[in-house]
């Protein structure tokens, strides 16, 4: 393993120092490991907090700023943050109108955020949690941990963030976040596993003719191993799974996301296939993102997230946003 790091132990601390130096628009609390807006919480606005394991950059710290998150709590690589840390983020985001926790559905994230919400309650901060679980690769069932929260989390953060900026109250913002999660589906394929610094080797090994179908964002194996194929087929397979789970029609927001180690030129090639598939099925790409938005360190592969737009969602998506990783309109 060769990594651009000082030591596996210092990766998060070093990255946070870097974020602090790079983005004057952010306040980075190195002690508590909280990234928040430099100006502090916006009084009277619902605060948005997200967090989870590190290694998914720009998620979540890169989405802190006007129109999106108020604070983020990055844990160790692929490990959810701890309750005290999430509490600190919640306090940094609290402008008196309550705080929304956006939590990806993993046992660790859910439990630590739940504990943090209880601590916040002790401090009289009203917290509502929305758990994202947009991964169509995982079979859903009440007997299991359910589906994972993956790429759709970016949509939730952007759209709920816009609603909060417009002045919606906590329950309304939470309702919108829940709705966004419900109308979003994602699917991912990996070509080569990423390497966790502390582990020192890739999370799984694949032969040159193999891919992992239906992976999450933590370098874990997928729901099955498949054969390497042209990008046309890999994208088609992904959209077939999504479409079977929630038929695609009308105007769509489509994210063709890289897992961190795939070059942008290939992501554009994959997006071309996605757009063609979608047009071919009578739906329409109304808005899109192509690039690295929710990654798995240096993993090679892609994910597709698709959201069914309506007028409200479109307006909130188009609303101004100014974060390190997503910015338009100001």
């Amino acid at each position: 393993m060769k990594k651009l790091i000082n030591s596996p132990d210092s990766v998060i601390a070093d990255a946070l120092r870097g974020m602090a130096a790079a983005h004057p628009s952010l306040a980075v609390d190195l002690e508590n490991r909280v990234v928040s807006r430099a100006g502090g919480a916006t009084q009277g606005k619902v605060g948005l907090v997200s967090g989870g394991g590190s290694g998914h950059e720009p998620l979540h710290g890169g989405y802190v700023g006007y129109g999106m998150l108020d604070a983020a709590a990055p844990g160790e690589v692929y490990t959810s943050p701890v309750p005290d840390q999430i509490l600190a983020a919640t306090k940094a985001a609290d402008g008196g109108a309550g705080v929304l926790h956006i939590v990806k559905n993993y046992t660790g994230d859910v439990l630590n955020f739940r504990m943090a919400a209880e601590l916040a309650d002790d401090d009289d901060i009203r917290v509502v949690s929305v758990v994202t679980n947009d991964d169509a690769a995982v079979e859903d069932s009440t007997y299991t941990a359910g589906r994972r929260g993956v790429g759709g989390t970016v949509f939730v953060e952007k759209i709920a963030g816009a609603a909060a900026e417009e002045g919606a109250d906590l329950d309304t913002v939470a309702g919108i976040a829940t709705h966004v999660n419900e109308v979003t589906r994602s699917f991912a394929i990996a070509l080569h596993a990423g390497t966790v610094p502390a582990a020192g080797k890739p999370g799984f090994d694949l032969a040159d003719d193999e891919v992992e179908l239906g992976v999450g964002i933590h370098g874990e194996p997928g729901r099955e191993r498949g054969s390497m194929a042209p990008v046309h087929d890999l994208v088609g397979y992904s959209l077939d799974v999504i479409h079977a789970d929630r038929p695609l029609s009308g105007d769509l927001l489509v994210m063709l996301n890289g897992q961190g180690g795939t070059p942008l030129i290939e992501l554009y090639g994959a997006f071309a296939e996605a757009a063609a598939w979608i047009e071919g099925h009578g739906a329409r790409v109304a808005r899109s993102l192509v690039g690295n938005y929710i990654t798995s360190l240096d993993q090679q592969g892609f994910s597709i997230s698709v959201l069914a737009l309506d007028d409200d969602l479109l307006r909130l998506w188009d609303a101004p946003v100014a974060t390190p990783a997503l910015r338009w309109g100001r």
Binding site: G53, G75, T79, S80, V82, G108, L111, N112
Partner: peptide
């Protein structure tokens, strides 16, 4: 353990 672990095993 709760304060420093994170993940599923920390709270559990």
């Amino acid at each position: 353990i709760v304060a420093k672990t994170g993940g599923a095993s920390g709270p559990l």
